[in-house]
């Protein structure tokens, strides 16, 4: 209750005129809960959408195989009922000898944002309030010869046709750092790096403190300030418990390299959506992979290398003249 009350007052203050009414609403809710106590625990549970089993759920890494099976069954039941389709939740693990890496050719990116919306569809992001895991920043081409300040990039550009004359584009999502500051600061152990290099979040263990958002130098983490709104007909029923499972209000979310796809061998959704083939993905430990080819043959760089976060997301310049 404490968290709800505080949120309520905070938003009430932000809106100013509604302060009084929001307090009244709170008192009303408090009264309802009070009555619920008399009726019994299930009444409170339904009033607050409180799920005792979720509340008591262990950290993903500590669940026994048996317990994990139970969690998955419960989630599949819950989502299938909520969205009216056959939802499958997987907890498929990493492959041996695989470390994922991503490459993005900024000489080809045209800033069309098709990756952004492919990601929203694939990963069940909230439509309103709007959450985008990928942000495409627009920069002046003439500025490219000096050091680019990422904070000067414009994610809100609007053009009739892209690419606009004299601009270049840098799409940014989670960089899946080898030394990830976000997972270091998490006080509950809700985010960590998997053996295949994917930085994941246990959404049921996130307490919404947003330390990770403060720690991330790339602005790649996004907070559910409001109740996520995900239309049932647009739900992607192929879910992973650490990836695109629907999030609740008050938790942080971010790109998972489409964990539900890549752990089955498929390419990420943004990769397949890119109309110019600027996105490259593969196994950094496989010397024949396309990601290794571009690391060995192209001029690659990572964002904010000086912070020594060691991202596994590489930007490169693919074109060298017209031949």
């Amino acid at each position: 209750m404490g968290i709800f009350r505080r949120n309520k007052q905070a938003t009430g203050q932000a809106k100013g005129s509604q302060k009084g009414s929001s307090r009244r609403d709170f008192l009303k809710t408090a009264a309802t809960v009070g009555a619920g106590t008399a009726v019994g625990a299930p009444a409170i549970a339904s009033a607050l959408e409180f799920d005792f089993e979720t509340f008591m759920q262990k950290n993903f890494r500590e669940l026994s195989d048996e317990e994990l099976k139970g969690v998955i069954e419960r989630l599949e039941r819950k989502y299938s009922e909520k969205y009216g389709k056959d939802v499958s939740v997987s907890a498929i693990g990493p492959m041996d000898g695989v470390l994922y890496g991503y490459g993005l050719d900024i000489s080809r990116c045209i800033g069309c944002r098709k990756c952004v919306y492919a990601c929203v569809d694939e990963n069940n992001q909230s439509r309103d309030p709007e959450i985008h895991w990928i942000r495409v920043l627009e920069f002046e081409r003439s500025e490219a010869l000096r050091t680019i300040n990422l904070e000067e990039g414009n994610p809100y550009y609007e053009h009739e046709k892209v690419p606009a004359e004299g601009k270049f584009y840098v799409p940014i999502a989670c960089q899946h750092c080898e030394d990830s500051p976000c997972s270091t600061v998490c006080p509950t152990g809700a985010t960590w790096q998997e053996p295949d290099g994917i930085v994941v979040i246990d959404y049921d263990w996130c307490i919404g403190c947003r330390y990770c958002m403060a720690a991330c130098p790339y602005g790649a983490r996004h907070f559910n300030w409001g109740e996520p709104n995900l239309p049932a007909e647009e739900v992607n029923p192929d879910m992973h418990i650490l990836g695109n499972k629907p999030r609740a209000r008050g938790v942080v979310e971010k790109c998972s390299f489409c964990i539900q796809r890549v752990r089955k061998g498929r390419l990420p959704a943004c990769h397949e959506a890119c109309p110019v083939g600027a996105r490259k993905f593969g196994n950094l430990l496989d010397p024949n992979s396309e990601i290794r080819y571009l690391l060995e043959h192209k001029r690659t760089f990572v964002l904010k290398a000086e912070l020594e976060t060691n991202p596994k997301f590489f930007y490169f310049w693919g074109t060298e003249g017209r031949s």
């Binding site: 045209i110 800033g111 944002r113 709007e130 994610p155 809100y156 550009y157 609007e158 046709k161 892209v162």
Partner: peptide
Amino acid sequence: FVPIEGEPRP
């Protein structure tokens, strides 16, 4: 390449 129509901004 000819420029194409982009998707809406955030």
